[in-house]
Design a binder for these strands. Structure first.
Lengths: 268, 268
DNA sequence: GCATGCGTTCCGCAGTGTGAAATGGTACGT
DNA sequence: ACGTACCATTTCACACTGCGGAACGCATGC
């Protein structure tokens, strides 16, 4: 039954692809255990597939996933992965030019979530954030950037959720006046910043004690907003205004590129 | 940019897969022109992919297509291709055991359509029918087998369509009495046969002048009917009753296998 | 501090993939 | 009926590619 000649190296490559199919988001080690192929070989296979665009690699944690080849049902999680996949190469280029790292965040109920990051790639070792880490809606640069530009209806839904929250950091959702001032400022500036001036319980500690500043812009796809990307740097290096003057245009440009890349991918 | 080591043979394999993705249903020659890879190599690649279940080959005309790896949107055409893909190995085994060939047919508006066939594989060279060839609803074994078992509503829709037809071979749709007798006979026997006793204009010529008999059973998936498969043989070799006594059970068995294979494939 | 785990690189050997050319088979034109 | 053209498949000798054990680098955890 296996009569005609087969290409063994291709066969093992397909075996890795099938493993990745069964368990998306795998590390090299997991694929090694799953397939029994030696790690150097899997590495070569993944490099090859990546160069062909069949698999992509997440910048943040180096995990592999199958690329845009199969579209599948557009479940919520999958959709976010598509955005992250499209964003990865663009964030990578951005990081190479500006040196400071970026994150891609998407909405996830009562918080936002990191789906991609170039922090590991930045020459400046800022703290390593994990993929999937929750980020507050109201105090973060990405959260306010998203809320400032998303449709009113969606913003209301998020705020309704936060009003039911008992977390102290979500109190602000019950003060529409102050919140609207903040969002108006975001729209005027064109980018979101961390709201560190408001003291009091951000995740228990003092707000944003990591010594970083951040600016964030939304990923606007027509009226919709897919998520937000930010850039981070050390407070002591630049003021927010100085940094924005240098890099805001590039950040906005990257956002536009990501959106059009997502559009291209979902059209087919 | 292409720094790390790459497996060239895998790369060309993926190139063929991408070509197949862009143009499903390709012949070896087409893939050769599309990729520029030598034909022996493409053949080896396709054998390899086929053995891994990534691509499947149509028995009828030897064309290749991408396998169940990607589910896509279940458009009408794609769904039929899935059925054909599932049916191929089962029809192949059937042909090996019985020697006489089979076809898989699916509904296509005012006619049925061949989506797979083992005629080329049969030791008896019956005439070669092409994939996509239209087959009459009312006079063919597969058509009557389908109509006899499909839901009433669907049968009505087909007959309404045929009543609007001006083709002489569709006249029978306007005689519900005679038609119901025929369909009742099918249900009683458990299989459909060609209605060659009615003379007059089947596709212009005398009905079924090819010297063949045929029996057909539906592919029943619960209340739905996915299509029908038949078996063909030379009139002079056996009577219908004698042939059915020998092979009907196997044909019905193959139908059941195809349906459950389709179910397995569409569940994930 | 050491230990562990994972990703990556190195390198020499084994054996695998490659394409030109030959073969087999089918459809078409005359 | 014969000849031609086209396509799928097989054969074969040679080149070089893919392979995995071992070593390395770099984290994280104890």
């Amino acid at each position: 039954m296996s009569g005609p000649k087969v290409i063994k190296s291709l066969e093992r490559g397909l075996r890795v692809l099938q493993a990745l199919q069964m368990q998306p988001d795998s590390s090299l080690q997991e694929l090694y255990l799953l397939t029994g192929i030696s790690k150097p070989s899997i590495l070569r296979i993944l490099h090859t597939c990546a160069r062909s665009g069949i698999v992509t690699r997440r910048l943040g944690d180096g995990r592999y996933r199958i690329g845009a080849m199969l579209s599948h049902a557009p479940s919520r999680r999958e959709h976010h992965d598509r955005i992250a996949e499209a964003a990865a190469p663009i964030l990578e280029r951005l990081c190479e030019r500006v040196s400071w790292p970026s994150d891609l965040m998407v909405p996830a109920g009562d918080h936002m979530q990191i789906r991609e990051t170039t922090r590991a790639r930045s020459p400046f070792l800022l703290q390593q954030e994990r993929i999937g880490l929750p980020v507050n809606w109201l105090w973060s640069a990405v959260g306010t950037a998203y809320l400032a530009y998303c449709p009113t209806k969606e913003r209301q839904r998020v705020l309704d959720l936060l009003r039911k929250s008992s977390r102290p950091e979500d109190r602000l959702a019950r003060e529409p006046g102050r919140l609207n001032v903040i969002l108006d400022e975001v729209r005027e500036r064109g980018y979101g910043i961390r709201n560190s001036m408001h003291s009091g319980g951000y995740y228990g500690g003092p707000p944003h004690s990591d010594g970083l500043f951040s600016i964030a812009v939304p990923l606007r796809d027509g009226p919709r907003v897919l998520g937000a990307i930010n850039m981070l740097w050390l407070k002591k290096a630049f003021s927010i205004e100085a940094f924005a003057a240098h890099h805001l245009a590039e950040l906005q440009n990257a956002a536009a590129e990501i959106v059009s890349s997502v559009q291209r991918r979902t059209k087919r």
